[in-house]
Design a protein around this nucleic acid. Structure first.
Lengths: 322, 322
DNA sequence: ATGCCCGCCCAACTGATAGTTGTGGCTCGC
DNA sequence: GCGAGCCACAACTATCAGTTGGGCGGGCAT
């Protein structure tokens, strides 16, 4: 099916004339006639009743029209998503089920008219992500460099929101039925956090966390895949892992796992957003405002050492827009 | 843009291999390669990174993918909407802003996965609509024949729901600031209800209504268009009209009109649904159940004489399905 | 009643293109 | 180092989209 034919059909249905649609689309009336005829042949259905005054939708045409509109709208959105220059807002997240993506999805649900594309740079190094932001490959990235001095000149990093952690344990774990746990209660546990890239910001986060509360966190080992971790969690009476409270990682229903909030203090990972210092994408402002409107974490909160930068609002980047 | 190319892109992105997508789509690998290349040429963007193991989405490809999925889904829905034989549920309404369409829209919002097409037969005679139902051109029609004996053998008519009427008046009308009105209060008014086809079920409805409450209803005159009626309403101190409480007819904001509910008794038009007696469309059952779940009208209700058939539920038509 | 005009379809032509087969290059794993 | 797997390029063909030109039919005005 040719989307230009679908577009011709929509316009012709709206105008009630092939001629008018042809004029608008910059082709001859015959071309529109053939396009519609091709559609009708493909669908094996008559879409228009031809009259001397123009065309009129048949029942099938009426039924087809809203779907045709949806196709055309989809095509237009698809094109603007990748059009170089004036493309839709594109934000890099670590994974599509991460807290970052979940919060972005929340934003999109409250602003469904926004053209927002969530992508994942297949790189580990936040400095590569910073370079992608600098190059304009993405408009913003949810990555953190722990030393802001290593950022490119024209990339800034602002605080987005804090992501609280929860303990994930299997049914045989002694804390399995706890409603909340405190960091001191984690002291004797074996906490597996696989898949952490050495020397990454996550490695440093877990390092500081282990030191601060005298925890035993295995973050170094290679990632053998989610199944290995999940199998270990389900079977073990002392292995646990940490997940973001907003993460929406899914696992087969066969895994009987429990999420337990951590409080006093809440352990939180500070999520940052990297964006160009000059002329950031216009759509970013509303997204950042959305972060600011998120409810702050209740009670005491522990954060890693680098999360000492003051909170910034969208207003702070406003002057950089031209 | 060719939707088969878009579909190929989606499958290739999911499989990570052009080859695999080609096998599934029943074309050669080269064809898929050319389709993707054509898409890339049209979008002026690279969608895949080619590797020796297959293909991998670029950032642009990631951004494009969800829109591509939406296009493909739209195409599939469009095709099923008109596919002869197994097509989507298609219901005829009097107008897209009528109470019938509004209630169907409510239904669809609570069951968004339903493939439902709302169309309008461009005919006045309910018997023509009945013939369309019989022929399978539509799966059901919101029309009423006041004498069920005139229906074709294999078409049945069931009660859908009652649509209460409201008074529509301009600002200078003496009832303009009333919160409700009763039928006796309408006795001296000039009520214009233009566009009523003589001898139609609506003509008979207004006829019975006028007789029952000694009203003066001008339903015979030709329809000069909405503007004429609206102009008359705005200017006049005694002209009023009746609209369905659920109707969503829109008029320019410049018209300052008020809707006033009618109570004691509520005046209601009984909406019926005509459907095949044998093998009605499977999706109809849920729609009819939705009607049954609508809140009944409060207080006393006046209905025309033919609305004496007992209410029927979806269960009554269940045995006719094979 | 009789043209006229408008809008659509059909016919013929041409340039583009989608699909096929055949082939070559690349990378990974054994 | 070699084979297997996967993708791109080349050449060919059949199809098709779009153009110009012509004809038909139904309102509408004279």
């Amino acid at each position: 099916m040719d989307t230009e034919a679908v577009r011709s059909f929509v316009r012709a249905a709206e105008f009630g004339q092939l001629q008018h649609a042809a004029d608008e689309l910059g082709v001859t009336q015959q071309a529109v006639s053939k396009r519609v005829a091709a559609l009708e042949r493909e669908l094996e259905v008559r879409l228009f009743i031809r009259t001397a005054r123009g065309v009129e939708l048949t029942l099938d045409g009426q039924a087809f029209l809203p779907h045709a509109r949806s196709i055309v709208a989809g095509v237009d959105r698809a094109v603007t998503a990748v059009r170089p220059g004036s493309r839709a807002l594109r934000i890099d997240v670590l994974g599509l089920r991460s807290a970052q993506a979940v919060v972005l999805h929340d934003y999109w649900r409250s602003h469904p008219e926004t053209d927002l594309d969530v992508v994942t740079l297949r790189v580990n190094d936040p400095h590569v992500a910073a370079a992608a932001v600098q190059a304009g490959d993405v408009d913003a990235s949810f990555r953190t460099v722990t030393d802001p001095a290593t950022l490119p000149r024209d990339v800034q990093m602002i605080h987005a929101f804090d992501s609280p952690l929860e303990l994930l344990v299997g049914p045989r774990h002694p804390l399995a039925s706890a409603r909340t746990v405190t960091p001191p209660q984690l002291r004797k546990l074996r906490i597996w956090v696989p898949g952490i890239v050495p020397r990454s910001e996550w490695a440093e986060f877990y390092d500081q966390l282990a030191t601060a509360f005298d925890l035993r966190i295995d973050a170094a080992g290679p990632n053998f895949g989610n199944e290995v971790l999940l199998d270990a969690l389900v079977d073990s009476a002392d292995v646990a892992t940490l997940v973001g409270a907003r993460d929406r990682y899914i696992w087969p229903a066969s895994y009987d796992l429990r999420r337990i909030p951590i409080v006093n203090p809440t352990l939180a990972y500070p999520l940052s957003l990297m964006l160009p210092r000059t002329t950031p994408h216009p759509g970013l402002r509303a997204v950042i405002n959305h972060f600011a409107s998120l409810a702050p974490l209740p009670g005491a909160v522990w954060l890693p050492s680098w999360a000492t930068t003051p909170r910034r609002s969208a207003g702070d980047i406003a002057h950089t827009r031209h």
